[in-house]
Design a protein around this nucleic acid. Structure first.
Lengths: 239, 239
DNA sequence: GAGTGGTCTAGACCACGAT
DNA sequence: TCGTGGTCTAGACCACTCT
């Protein structure tokens, strides 16, 4: 939120110092020295506590590392839990070309399960979006996404986007938090036909409840061809 | 109030204030007010910047939340990515009784795949621990864990623990970071026999590379009965 | 108007690392 | 010895909330 003030001419001093140091430091190799606190005091004509406030923020961010008696240095990037990735991003990471074919996109009344997951009342309007997704032209998965229409009015009318997560991000609603469940199963007849499998072939089922802040924005169920898809994830955080 | 501080002979002032506030605040309901900064200034006879340093630390920890013009309050606990949980913890969470039967526990020479994953050289000594794991007396999964023997000397001789993660934790090596891969498959004949399945039944395969700090401490492959196991996980972090 | 947190100053002394 | 970050002081003004 402080960042918003940078565009204004009257940015807070500690923000000015922080952003100045950030530009110096982004892209620099881990271990490179940052300016010393006293150097920044002279450069900006501010008190040392102000400089420390600026540097503190960057240290908390994980961008800088202080070493008493030596100085302040660019920190080695910390490993943290994965950002939630969209299907497009996932496939791009694997070097595959993602494609999507909308099978269904309409308003529905929320059933009991979807209503509970989306934190809405049964019968409330939700958007149901079903897509067959391919990678390098081969069927990969079928995804049923349910969205809370109250949060994204006019979504269906605005033309369906390529990437759901990009569309949500444009509205400030990209999920940053998700509860997932994953299990192994076999394909139903309908699924097998769409995925070009024989019924009974192995599939991976993935359910997600994705939230942005306090709001549940997405509930989805995806069924993947097990022979083409292995889920990768990183969990935990470096101490 | 001084009573709390007696344990520390020469604690730093901001640490004294921080720990005093922490004791007041732990267990308090989210939204409860913390002492105001000026109140702490008077109580401890310190400068306000010192109090702010103390409170800043608790805010960064996620314990407190500042609301300008109103005060400082106990924060609602933040959602963060799951701690890495052991099998025992996972089953306990589901209300099931975990059991483990060691099928194999010995030193081996690392093969190419395990060596690469564990960051050791091919042929280095590794510990291979294979267990059949049950939940409420029913077969649940087979786990093959590989451990870097250099990090845990005497592990095999010390008697096998019930929980690998507890044993690693006792050595300061509990993984806090993992790279996982998950896919769906069918049981092999050997797996089917141990898991009391028919060959070809659905299973969930889970591979993990778990690290503590910079060290890779655990590489494991686990095969779960799909009819009894659904993986749950939480990803991302609240913004 | 009183109280709160947010920002900021202009100094100070300390422990520690490098030279 | 000199420079570094770590700690600390005793004030100040601001914007904001609550009553």
């Amino acid at each position: 939120m402080d960042d918003l003030l940078v565009t204004e001419g009257r940015a807070l001093k500690h923000v000015q110092v922080r952003e100045y140091v950030r530009t110096l430091v982004t892209g620099a190799a881990p271990g490179s020295p940052a300016p010393s606190e006293r150097e920044l005091v002279h450069r900006f004509g501010v008190a040392r506590m102000t400089v420390r406030q600026a540097m503190d923020a960057l240290v908390v961010e994980g961008l800088l590392e202080r070493i008493p008696g030596r100085g302040t240095f660019v920190a080695r990037p910390r490993r943290t839990a994965s950002r939630l990735t969209s299907y497009s991003e996932e496939m791009a990471r694997r070097g595959l070309l993602p494609e999507s074919q909308t099978l269904l996109a309409r308003r529905e009344q929320a059933g009991p399960g979807v209503a509970r997951a989306l934190n809405v009342s049964e019968g409330d309007a939700v958007i149901h979006w079903r897509r067959l997704r391919r990678a390098d032209a081969q069927p990969m998965c079928i995804e049923d996404a349910y969205l809370n229409e109250v949060l994204i009015p006019g979504f269906l009318q605005s033309g369906m986007p390529t990437s759901l997560y990009d569309a949500l991000e444009a509205r400030g609603l990209r999920p940053t938090w998700a509860e997932d469940s994953i299990n192994a199963d076999v394909a139903s007849e309908d699924e097998a036909e769409l995925l070009e499998l024989t019924p009974g072939a192995s599939v991976l089922r993935h359910s997600r409840r994705g939230s942005a802040g306090e709001k549940v924005v997405e509930v989805s169920r995806t069924v993947y061809r097990a022979d083409r898809f292995t889920m990768w994830l990183q969990v935990g955080a470096e101490s």
